[in-house]
Write a protein that binds this DNA or RNA. Structure first.
Lengths: 118, 118
DNA sequence: TGAACACATGAACATACGTTCATATATTAA
DNA sequence: TTAATATATGAACGTATGTTCATGTGTTCA
């Protein structure tokens, strides 16, 4: 049992700890990954993503589809756009949103198979 | 332009809206998917998952690895266990945690390739 | 039996987050 | 130019969430 340098935690398995320390991904990419998952971790945003995965849509259609106020949808689209998950295209006063990523579909597909099995 | 039955939202594209309504996944699996992503959406939990993906570990080793208090780790492990993402095995007074799912690795792998490219 | 240890857990606290409300911006049509 | 429309956005509000602190539970060892 060895005291850690930075906190009071006791270390029982020095060998595995050393190995995991070496093989662990850096903190930054892990942080970015969890930031990505955080965006997915709201059902409104997930529903928007599922919808945009089927068709390019404008804000008021999304609002009607999800039965939510235009403001709420717009706020969430802003977050999705900041995360570079959706892109927008303005035509007149209508703004069309669509998915801006190739991995989203794959990640969601895996997640769906996860929650639907067992 | 047609007024929606349940909210004041204006519908511009009736045809795509109808098609998306038909092809959209049900609300419940989408909700479950976003609940799963919500669990992944915290960097502490993501780091725990990355660690357990490399080795079965006890609480105090995780605590030392992530330089966090035993209590904080324990609380997060509770959440991961409730989500059936990790399982625990008690040996004496030491509790060993390991991943309890085959999809986690794939989902994280996809997410990593997403954040590391571009 | 009691001390030490590994872990769990409830309460408290600060912070983050999603929606609502009011309003601003930009475009079209009269 | 004015009214209507589609969207964006800031402030406010309630709620959810992660960590800390204190303490509880269960196990080992002297």
């Amino acid at each position: 049992m060895i005291e850690n340098e930075f906190c009071e935690a006791t270390v029982i398995h020095e060998d595995t700890l050393r190995r995991v320390r070496e093989e662990m991904p850096d903190e930054e990419p892990i942080y970015e990954v969890s930031e990505l998952f955080k965006v997915f971790g709201d059902s409104t945003r997930s529903r928007i993503i599922c919808a945009l995965n089927l068709a390019e849509m404008c804000v008021c259609d999304l609002s009607a589809l999800l039965n939510m106020t235009q403001s709420a949808i717009s706020h969430q689209l802003r977050i999705l756009k900041a995360a570079r998950l959706v892109k927008s295209k303005k035509q007149g006063r209508v703004v069309y949103y669509s998915l801006d990523d190739s991995h989203i579909g794959q990640i969601f597909a895996l997640a769906f198979t996860h929650v639907t099995e067992e």
